[in-house]
Design a protein around this nucleic acid. Structure first.
Length: 569
RNA sequence: CGGGGUGUAGCGCAGCCAGGUUAGCGCGCGUGCUUUGGGAGCACGAGGCCGGCGGUUCGAAUCCGCCCACCCCGACCA
């Protein structure tokens, strides 16, 4: 493959729309171009890299016993009506009509179609389990496409679906897929944390996300530094680090705190920190006021609160609702003597002493408050977010909080779709039963961006060998010199003979341009054919990842390249 | 969807507030000569419905209105 401008149209300057390294570098390295918000064209090198990722996924899926299928991207509305998701999905689903006015959508995922397809085979227990996957373009009209390939509206995803006679059988496949996903991440040189996750719109009750810790991640995860516990921040559980409490007193003392409402304001006014201030967040649920108390350095987790309240029909109290609930004093609500309001206490409040709380009258707080003596925090629930310093519920190790990129998500679905689509099998006893399902998604285009996010430097991309679009770039410094051009030609042919296609930069350009473009494009090895060929019969071999560079004799170049590729990351 | 911002050559930007001949700059692109191991030099050149529609005006890239697109923050989603 030759490095003409059309094949690899590199950009010297950073495109204005790129906010993160992977987005910038994929554009600048000439791997892709934007078409519309969240929609991209993959150019030759980008398409090759995507294929590498998808080849790895395919290999691991096949190894895990899954069979590849191809489902349509254009879905009729009917199966989505049956599952109820035609309406649940809302505007995120790309919808369109055909010339007859029939409703279609561009598939955001494919539980409905695959379940229908398997249902039509009318399997018996002897035919199960079955695990089918596809690698296909998906469509979600994201409210906010962002970060290039990280969150697009059209993207590539591998989705797999398994069908089982019982939960135990599902568990076996689920574990296998979990292993396979870890292998995919390893194969792509991505360090991954497996975390417990919420199931959301897909449904089901158990799910795990595969997260790559990254500052640009859109999700927050909590994980243990000592064991393999990890969870999405929305449903993590933690043991409080025992940081809550302040100066104790024989009895609560009222202090004047005019106009001071936030935890930070009150704490700094009283010369202390958020560790001794009780935060109160007011909600309205079922027409009733709910006062939620958490330590000042934590936030209320609305996911956890929904579990406590038994409903997700609640919202933060709006200013215009306050007059309806005279029992609470906006900004100064405290647990002492609070009546006529539903209260929810965080676990960490139980037993805490020396607290600063709202005094339930404007412009006053109470200091030296003690739980158990001045109010009762019961029942208490885990309703707060984790913070650095909390302990792992499993091993007591220190929890860490980080942002992460979700590259994969697997679910134990149960019978949600098989019941809706009438997908049953004939069991040993001759009776029809709904199949138990699992569903497993992994974003291949997102993995591509994540690899770049994890493997780059100021000069450009540093492709790991496994996902590099091509293994080697040959830079011909003076393509006008016949010796150099011929050496490049011989090397290209020799490597092709070993099944290795390479990129050759034979442009008439100054050397600096080629060096910089080679670093930007980031193929694992660079072979520089230049003046040393004439002077001492050598070419330079540079390892992009380490920057290491050495001269090798041109007739040994093929062996040296093969060896270097085995050693490179 | 709420808030903010930006649309001027392939890319990055200036000009707009204070309307006035031919709309600039850098990179990239073409031609010629020189150069050839870390983004070369000189010379000449091509390339613009100034996002779209409408309005104000003698005159609009510039002022006003509507629309569209893109980006950021939030909400949403998983």
């Amino acid at each position: 493959m030759r490095f003409s401008r059309v094949t690899v149209p590199t950009l010297k300057e950073k495109p204005a729309e790129a906010q993160i390294p992977s987005h910038e570098l994929l554009l600048r390295a000439g791997m892709m171009r934007a078409v519309a918000a969240g929609i991209y064209t993959m150019l030759p090198l980008g398409a090759l890299a995507l294929q590498r990722v998808e080849d790895i996924v395919r290999r691991e899926m096949n190894a895990a016993g899954a069979l590849e299928v191809v489902l349509p991207t254009l879905h009729p509305a009917d199966p989505w009506m049956k599952s109820g998701r035609w309406h649940q999905y809302g505007p995120e689903m790309m919808r369109l009509g055909d010339r007859q006015g029939r409703d279609f959508c561009l598939g955001p995922t494919a539980e409905e179609l695959i379940t229908e397809a398997v249902a039509k085979t009318a399997p018996s227990y002897r035919d199960l389990p079955v695990n089918l996957y596809q690698i296909q373009t998906k469509f979600r009209d994201e409210t906010r496409p962002r970060f290039g390939l990280i969150r697009g509206r059209e993207f590539r995803m591998k989705d797999a679906y398994s069908f089982h006679v019982d939960e135990g059988d599902l568990d076996r496949t689920y574990d296998r897929m979990r292993q396979a996903y870890s292998s995919v991440a390893r194969g792509c040189s991505l360090p991954v944390r497996v975390v417990e996750a919420v199931t959301g719109l897909i449904g089901g009750d158990v799910s795990h996300e595969f997260m790559v810790v990254s500052g640009i991640g859109e999700d927050v995860l909590v994980y243990c530094g000592d064991c393999d516990y990890g969870a999405d921040a929305e449903l993590e559980s933690h043991s409080p680090g025992g940081m809550f409490g302040g100066t104790e007193a024989a009895a609560p003392q009222e202090v004047h705190t005019p106009g001071l409402v936030s935890v930070e304001e009150v704490a700094s006014f009283l010369g202390t920190g958020p560790a001794s201030v009780t935060k109160c967040v007011l909600y309205v649920a079922g027409g009733e006021a709910v006062a939620v108390f958490v330590p000042g350095y934590r936030e209320v987790s609305e996911t956890k609160l929904a579990r406590v309240l038994g409903t997700d029909e609640f919202h933060p109290m709006r200013e215009d609702e306050r007059e309806k609930f005279p029992a609470v004093t906006a900004g100064y609500t405290g647990p002492v003597g609070l009546e006529g309001v539903r209260t929810v206490f965080d676990l960490e409040i139980a037993g805490a002493r020396g607290l600063i709380c709202g005094a339930n009258r404007p412009d006053y707080h109470l200091g030296g408050v003690e739980e158990g003596r001045d109010f009762a925090a019961e029942p208490a629930f885990d309703v707060a977010t984790a913070v650095q310093g909390d302990a792992c519920v499993r091993c007591g190790g220190e929890l860490r909080i980080a942002r992460g990129i979700e590259i994969g998500h697997i679910f134990k679905l149960g019978v949600k779709y098989s019941e809706a689509m009438g997908a049953s099998f004939t069991d040993r006893d001759g009776k029809d039963k709904p199949m138990i399902m699992g569903t497993y998604g992994i974003g291949t285009s997102r993995i591509l961006a994540t690899v770049v996010e994890q493997h780059h430097d100021d000069g450009g991309i540093k492709w790991p060998v496994s996902v590099a679009p091509l293994p080697v770039e040959v830079l011909v410094i003076s393509p006008g010199r016949r010796e150099q051009a011929e050496a490049a030609e011989r090397l290209t042919r020799a490597l092709a003979g070993r099944g290795m296609e390479i990129l050759v930069d034979d442009r008439e350009a100054s050397p600096g341009v080629k060096f910089n473009d080679a670093d930007l494009v980031g193929l694992p090895l660079q072979v520089v054919i230049g003046k040393k060929l004439d002077s001492d019969g050598t070419v330079d071999l540079k390892v992009r990842y380490t920057g290491e560079r050495r001269a090798v004799r041109v007739e040994l170049a093929v062996e040296e390249i093969e060896r270097a590729l085995e050693e490179a990351p």
